[in-house]
């Protein structure tokens, strides 16, 4: 069942005297439990797409349906509430508030939503356990490694059980080992929590952990590859790189 789908999504910006067409008609559908990677060269429109999907920006035309609701024409306040309850974000940098402990950072979306935190202790412990962060829960961000910080960010995105989790280059700032760990966690989250995840990345290795990779070029979907659970990592990587090469030509 599609938890998120878009129809003929257009987005254009006015930059000085120029009109930049970032998206020129993107239709995309993502199901519950599906882990989708979005790739493409700089300027292909992948970040723009992610921002539109997360309700951070509004399309020039076209529709976005998230959790059975059209979010393409919401007011700022409505969009804020949609983000709060239906979207989880993991960014490349500055994911955590330095003044709060790991645990408090994870609980932040619930604090924002005015929830009684006592009701979420079990969920919190569960997530911390699954992400292997039980012993680090009271640490401040500056006492955590980059990989640990990103895991806290992931936990924070998952705690509200959002309809979709959006990740913008989540491994971009990590060493390769932490990057691999992060991708495995995302993969597992999609399966264990039946969570829809959309990840924008430059890195073919990261994209190889997804179920499906969507390639954008000049604001349009240029290609798409799907993987089955049995596909091996090197095969996936090969497929992705071959497609990239083909599109670059």
């Amino acid at each position: 069942m599609a938890v998120l789908y878009t129809q003929d999504l257009h987005k254009q910006y006015v930059l000085g005297q120029h009109i930049v067409k970032a998206l020129k008609g993107v239709s995309l559908s993502v199901s519950q439990g599906e882990f989708v990677g979005i790739m493409g060269p700089s300027g292909s429109g992948k970040s723009t797409l992610l921002h539109l999907l997360g309700g951070l920006d509004q399309p020039t035309s076209g529709d976005i349906h998230l959790a059975d609701r059209n979010i393409s024409t919401l007011s700022d306040h409505q969009a804020t509430l949609v983000r709060r309850r239906n979207v989880g974000f993991v960014f490349q940098f500055f994911n955590l508030l330095p003044t709060l402990s790991a645990e408090e950072n994870i609980l932040l979306p619930l604090i924002i939503d005015g929830k009684n935190l006592k009701n979420y202790q079990e969920a919190l412990n569960d997530i911390l356990k699954k992400l292997g962060m039980e012993n680090r829960r009271h640490h401040k961000p500056d006492q955590l490694s980059g990989g640990e910080q990103q895991r806290v960010a992931l936990a924070r995105a998952l705690i509200t059980q959002p309809a979709v989790l959006l990740a913008d280059e989540p491994t971009g700032n990590l060493d390769s080992r932490s990057g691999t760990d992060m991708m495995l966690l995302l993969q597992r989250s999609a399966r264990q929590f039946n969570q829809a995840i959309i990840m924008v990345t430059h890195d073919p290795k990261a994209a190889a952990y997804t179920d499906r990779v969507v390639f954008l070029k000049d604001g349009l979907i240029a290609d798409e590859i799907s993987f089955s659970a049995d596909d091996k990592q090197p095969d996936r990587l090969h497929g992705i790189m071959a497609t990239q090469e083909r599109l670059e030509r």
Binding site: H77, V87, F94, L108, D113
Partner: peptide, 15 residues
């Protein structure tokens, strides 16, 4: 940026 992050996470303007 931090405030941007909080806003992305669903913090309203009033909050």
């Amino acid at each position: 940026r931090e405030i941007g992050l909080l806003r992305a996470m669903g913090m309203t303007r009033l909050q």
